[in-house]
Every structure is written in structure tokens, then in C-alpha cells.
Computed example of a mutant assay.
Amino acid sequence: MIEIEHLSKHYGETIVVDDVSLRVDEGTITVVVGTSGAGKSTLLRMINRLVEPSAGRVLIDGQDTMSIPEDELRHRIGYVIQGHGLFPHRTVAGNIATVPRLLGWDAKRIAQRVEELLLLFQLDPAEFAKKYPHELSGGQQQRVGVARALAARPALLLMDEPFGALDPLIRSKAQDDLLTIQRRLGTTVVLVTHDMEEAFHLGDMIAVMDEARLLQYGTAAELLTRPLPGFVERLVGTAERPFRLLSLAKVGDAVEPGSAEGEPVDVSSNLRDALSRLIWIGSPTAPVADASGAIVGRISVDGILAHGRRPT
């Protein structure tokens, strides 16, 4: 667990982070979102002391980070930046092995960890281990960057706009990959973005910052149904809010008894995608199938829209 208590950063008379307090529970993803210059990246860098706070403190599992030697602290925390920061002169395997080598792991243990991570990120070791970053696609570079950050099994992973340089299709796949791997490993993640859609897709908790201050901290559903008036309300969006609520719910939440014609919708799909499909095919209903392919009921436009209404 991470506890951020009254954290501030001043550069002369300029305040870039102003009295921010929040708690990040173990095994969750917290997304810090806001416009450029809001203080998001500075807040992130104060967690691993790339930036020293002017006031306040950060506790990781109850231990004040100021009591931990800087090198030791950063070896315990994975860090991923936009563009991934891969060393161009090192192979994929060499990049992933960076922190384990600094920690003095033996060659056999490093090789096993590199292979394990390449397989986890669906990169065939025989094909990718000896490649250099320039030989990889943007999505492959992103996966190697995250694999490198996870190499020493950190309990905490910090990510600063990690998907910002990717095109939309690769970005969506990279986000889904992160969710899959985070759930498998149970890593605690703090991620910075300016993209509200990304925040809603990834975040168990979302922290909204503006002009150096934390304005609201809550779940996606809380921000969508009870946004703080003003900046948060504008950032969440009025017209988009029902559709964003639908993206948080699964088809399984709105399955109705009965049958329907057409190709089945997967029970694990989100309701926004299901609504888009029904509108596209011009049908009021569609059958719903579970993971085994068995039909478990149907989904309807009316049923989906009922889930998109703001709670009273």
C-alpha cells in the first residue's frame, strides 16, 4: 500500500504539487489524470524520489521513502515512461536484464527471468531476445519496456504516459495487455495520463488533478455519477457520461431471458460495445453466449440504455 500524505513541491514561488494526499491499495491500478502542467508527472516522480518533495511524505507499506537509500528504492519500483526509454545499443534480453544485473543476480537466474517475461508478453524468446529496439514495432517496444520494469519483481510499477506515443489500435491492445498482466501478477500500478478514456478503462481508482491540486479521488463510477462541479465535471464530459458508464458494465450485467436471432455477443463484452453493435446491425436484440459458446439469454437496446441512466 502507498500512502501519500500532504505532498507538495515548490520551485521558488511556483507550486507544481500542492498538498496532495491519497492512498493506493495493494494490487490495484490508480490513474492520475489531468491537463498538461497539472502536476501529475511530478507527483509520480516524488514517489520514487526522482523529485524530492518540498513537504509531506510517501509511505510504502508503512515505510517512509526518505528512510530508504535512493538506489535501493528505485530498484524496488518499476518505472515506465512514454517512449519506453529502451537502451538502443542493448538487445531486448539485455534491456530486460538491466535491473537484475544491477542487483547482482547470477546469469542463470537472469536468463530464466528474461525468458519468463518474454513469454508472458507473448514475445517468442528465440525470435526477440537478440533483437535491438529499432527492430521492434512500437507495440513490441512498449511491451519490452514494461517487461524491463517488472524484471526484478517490483511490488510497485510507476507509468508516466506509457501509451502516449502509440497509434490508437496498438494503444488499445497495450492497455488490455497491461490489465491482463497486472491481474496475473498482482502488481500495484500508479499511471499518469491526460486521456480520460484511458483512465476509465484502466483505473480501479482515478485521481483528478488541476493546477497542482488533487480535486477528486474515487472510482470511475463515482466520478461519472458524482463529479465535482467545475473542472472535474467538464473533464468527465456531460454528453459522453452515459456511454462511459456503459463501458464500465459487462453484457452479463444486462442479460435478459429469452432468445434472439443473429451472431451472439460475448457475455464478457462491455455494454457500450454491445450497444454499438446492435445499432450497427439495426437490431433491437442479440443472443448472448458464455465462454463455452452456450447461449445464456439475450441483450436488448432498451436493457442496455437502462444501465446508462444516471442513478438517482
Rank of each mutant, 00 (worst) to 15 (best):
residue 76 R to C: 06
residue 7 L to Q: 09
residue 4 I to V: 15
residue 63 Q to V: 15
residue 85 G to S: 09
residue 84 H to F: 14
residue 99 V to M: 01
residue 29 I to M: 14
residue 44 L to M: 08
residue 4 I to M: 13
residue 99 V to Q: 01
residue 41 S to V: 05
residue 50 L to D: 03
residue 73 L to P: 03
residue 88 P to I: 00
residue 28 T to Q: 13
residue 29 I to R: 10
residue 46 M to G: 05
residue 94 G to H: 03
residue 76 R to N: 14
residue 16 V to I: 06
residue 83 G to D: 02
residue 67 S to V: 13
residue 43 L to H: 01
residue 9 K to N: 05
residue 19 D to Y: 08
residue 49 R to Q: 10
residue 59 L to Q: 12
residue 9 K to M: 06
residue 78 G to K: 00
residue 48 N to L: 03
residue 74 R to F: 05
residue 11 Y to H: 12
residue 9 K to I: 04
residue 62 G to E: 10
residue 93 A to W: 02
residue 94 G to T: 01
residue 95 N to G: 01
residue 99 V to T: 07
residue 21 S to T: 12
residue 31 V to Q: 06
residue 50 L to M: 14
residue 59 L to G: 06
residue 34 G to Y: 03
residue 65 T to Y: 12
residue 48 N to G: 06
residue 63 Q to Y: 07
residue 30 T to Q: 13
residue 50 L to N: 08
residue 92 V to L: 01
residue 59 L to K: 08
residue 54 S to E: 10
residue 71 D to Q: 14
residue 27 G to I: 11
residue 10 H to V: 07
residue 84 H to C: 11
residue 78 G to W: 00
residue 63 Q to D: 09
residue 53 P to K: 10
residue 77 I to N: 06
residue 92 V to E: 00
residue 76 R to F: 03
residue 14 T to A: 14
residue 61 D to H: 13
residue 55 A to K: 13
residue 95 N to Q: 04
residue 49 R to I: 05
residue 68 I to G: 06
residue 88 P to G: 02
residue 36 S to Y: 01
residue 100 P to I: 00
residue 25 D to C: 02
residue 29 I to D: 04
residue 23 R to A: 14
residue 30 T to V: 15
residue 75 H to C: 13
residue 93 A to P: 02
residue 75 H to R: 15
residue 37 G to V: 09
residue 67 S to L: 14
residue 64 D to W: 09
residue 25 D to W: 06
residue 25 D to Q: 15
residue 45 R to Q: 10
residue 47 I to C: 09
residue 93 A to M: 10
residue 81 I to T: 11
residue 65 T to Q: 11
residue 5 E to H: 13
residue 15 I to Q: 11
residue 54 S to T: 15
residue 71 D to G: 09
residue 93 A to E: 10
residue 91 T to F: 00
residue 14 T to N: 15
residue 38 A to M: 02
residue 101 R to P: 03
residue 59 L to N: 09
residue 63 Q to N: 12
residue 35 T to L: 15
residue 32 V to K: 08
residue 96 I to R: 00
residue 89 H to W: 06
residue 99 V to E: 00
residue 51 V to L: 07
residue 76 R to Q: 15
residue 62 G to Q: 13
residue 11 Y to I: 09
residue 96 I to M: 03
residue 18 D to P: 02
residue 99 V to C: 01
residue 65 T to S: 09
residue 85 G to V: 04
residue 42 T to P: 05
residue 7 L to C: 07
residue 86 L to T: 00
residue 39 G to W: 02
residue 94 G to W: 00
residue 23 R to T: 15
residue 27 G to M: 11
residue 86 L to R: 00
residue 26 E to L: 07
residue 77 I to H: 07
residue 47 I to P: 03
residue 31 V to E: 08
residue 22 L to C: 11
